[in-house]
Amino acid sequence: MEYPPFKLGSSRFDQSQFSGRFRHLLDLTDPRPLFTSQKKLDASIALLENFKRNSLPPGVTDKELWQAQKIKQSILHPDTGQKILMPFRMSGYVPFGTPIVVGMLLPNLTFPQMIFWQWLNQSHNACFNYSNRNATKPTPTSRFVAGYLGAVTSAISIAVGLSYLIKKSSSFSPATKLMIQRFVPYPAVASANICNVLLMRNNELTEGIDVCDENGNVVGTSKIAARQAVLSTAGTRVILPAPLLIIPPIVMSLLEKTRFLQRNPRFHLPFNALACTLSFGLALPACIALFPQYASIPTKDLEPEIQAVTSEKTLIFNKGL
């Protein structure tokens, strides 16, 4: 069913299947809620409050309830209830992030230009992570600063270092150098993502994360589950930028060989922007949907004190995105 019976706080798509997770993430990254008026937002919040109190007006449909929840979740932080700035919402990630990806993939970037785009990309990521953080527990600002500085430093160092080595190499022709140079943003961003995850979530490795039974009841706090969550998330962050930073360069290298683009070089930037937008809009949710956010782990692999308080064979934990 396109709009199943409404359940507050749940997804209307089956999260046990890739197709359901993909459609859920497409729904989250839909940019249309960016233009929601304050009046529409207030009406959506009021409708959800009426649902909670079992006082819905006659004629309200499940479709209206699902759309009201989508509007609220795309604009307000779930913990603080405050508005998230437009560039740092899930619904704003593609429209505000695409120009940055286009900038990183421009041909023949100078070192200052490369530093600027890598800095801007990591700054956008840092603000996005902070704006969508878990605010149920206080997190020192120093941890976000450390993650930001680590990500910026690693991204710029690798991008500039690889570019310098490529330009100084005598083993490649100018055309080959240009081709290889297109793919430099990927290792820079991937390494920065790993650095960011390890620095930002270091407290989970030292303090552990909650593990729950199938009903969502917290059984205990596990450092073993935390290590698996952080490492798997770091692995996911390596996969995420691959389609965004590899597919457009391949597409553009093929288009540049066509007679049309050779005769009309002014269309290079619009075509590059279109390739980045399509990759961003489809590949990003597809990559995130590969792995469920909530992972399971055999109880026998966890700490003895957790094994002692439950008879469940497997427990569940929030891996993170």
Results as ranks from 00 to 15, higher is better:
273 A>V: 02
17 Q>D: 09
295 A>V: 03
118 Q>M: 11
282 L>M: 15
202 N>A: 12
211 V>P: 02
46 A>P: 04
131 S>Y: 00
287 C>T: 12
317 F>G: 10
136 T>C: 08
194 I>V: 15
50 N>W: 00
19 S>Q: 11
42 D>Y: 00
115 I>W: 05
32 R>L: 13
176 T>S: 14
82 Q>E: 13
121 N>S: 10
284 L>K: 00
10 S>E: 08
267 F>Y: 13
161 G>I: 02
252 M>F: 04
310 T>W: 02
36 T>K: 07
213 D>S: 09
95 P>N: 08
109 L>M: 10
137 K>M: 04
25 L>N: 06
231 L>T: 13
217 N>E: 09
125 N>P: 01
144 F>C: 04
307 Q>W: 05
287 C>L: 04
3 Y>L: 04
248 P>T: 05
16 S>F: 05
185 P>K: 09
312 E>I: 02
304 P>K: 13
47 L>T: 02
248 P>N: 07
279 S>R: 04
318 N>L: 06
27 D>M: 12
312 E>T: 07
222 S>M: 04
163 S>C: 11
284 L>Q: 06
17 Q>N: 13
197 V>I: 10
100 I>R: 11
102 V>L: 13
269 L>V: 10
43 A>P: 01
11 S>D: 07
172 F>Y: 08
53 R>W: 00
12 R>E: 02
6 F>H: 02
219 V>Q: 13
169 S>F: 00
239 I>H: 03
75 I>K: 09
2 E>P: 09
27 D>Q: 12
269 L>D: 01
123 S>R: 05
197 V>W: 00
124 H>P: 04
285 P>A: 12
60 V>A: 08
43 A>W: 00
30 D>F: 08
216 G>V: 07
253 S>A: 15
267 F>N: 08
275 A>L: 05
42 D>E: 11
9 G>W: 00
162 L>H: 06
280 F>N: 09
256 E>W: 04
12 R>P: 05
303 E>M: 06
176 T>R: 15
151 A>N: 05
199 L>D: 01
78 P>C: 01
184 V>K: 08
301 D>V: 12
132 N>E: 03
137 K>R: 10
296 S>R: 14
110 T>V: 07
77 H>T: 04
253 S>D: 01
45 I>T: 12
233 T>S: 14
252 M>D: 01
244 L>D: 02
27 D>T: 11
52 K>G: 11
119 W>Q: 02
17 Q>L: 14
270 P>R: 10
146 A>S: 10
290 L>V: 06
235 G>S: 09
181 Q>I: 04
305 E>N: 14
124 H>R: 12
156 I>Q: 08
245 L>C: 10
282 L>T: 09
67 Q>S: 14
244 L>Q: 05
207 E>G: 14
277 T>V: 06
29 T>M: 14
157 S>M: 05
181 Q>C: 13
138 P>I: 01
216 G>Y: 03
120 L>H: 03
182 R>I: 00
107 P>T: 08
56 L>D: 01
150 G>S: 06
40 K>M: 01
110 T>F: 06
21 R>Q: 03
250 I>N: 08
47 L>K: 11
294 Y>H: 04
159 A>F: 03
13 F>H: 14
23 R>L: 15
62 D>R: 08
282 L>C: 14
212 C>T: 07
121 N>A: 14
155 A>F: 05
255 L>Y: 03
47 L>I: 06
101 V>H: 09
29 T>S: 09
14 D>R: 15
177 K>D: 00
72 K>S: 11
178 L>Q: 12
21 R>V: 05
238 V>T: 12
23 R>F: 03
58 P>A: 15
